[in-house]
């Protein structure tokens, strides 16, 4: 719940511009991008996600580093991804 996990924006939903489809470690889910909308989010951008909301935009290098780190911490990250897998906000 407290882990920020990086995800890559795949597409902004055309009927719901506050939502985007993102790829997080191979899991594709819809998340809310309303909190970072003013940074101009586009497909290919990386965001840090907390409980289904993008909280900040990050660059790709940071995203990769954060991902490596999260994978190294094991269970807490696995649990977060498992929870994300269960998430269906649409």
């Amino acid at each position: 719940m407290c882990l920020g996990i990086p995800g890559e924006v795949i597409e902004i939903l055309s009927d719901r511009p506050d939502l985007a489809r993102v790829d997080v470690s191979g899991v594709t889910r819809a998340i809310n991008i309303g909190l970072v909308a003013d940074t101009g989010i586009a497909p290919g951008d990386w965001v840090l996600i907390h409980v289904g909301f993008a909280l900040s935009k990050i660059d790709e290098t940071e995203a990769k580093a954060a991902m490596d780190f999260l994978e190294s911490i094991g269970k807490a990250y696995d649990d977060e991804i498992a929870a994300l897998r269960e998430s269906h906000i649409l």
Partner: peptide, 28 residues
């Protein structure tokens, strides 16, 4: 996983009162 999941459960279950127990610091 997300409060938005909770909102969706509310939409799907109009006969239930859905309550989300929100916790966390400024990150959530």
């Amino acid at each position: 996983y997300s409060p938005l999941d909770s909102l969706k459960i509310a939409r799907q279950n109009p006969d239930r009162d859905v309550v989300f127990m929100a916790i966390g610091f400024e990150t959530t």
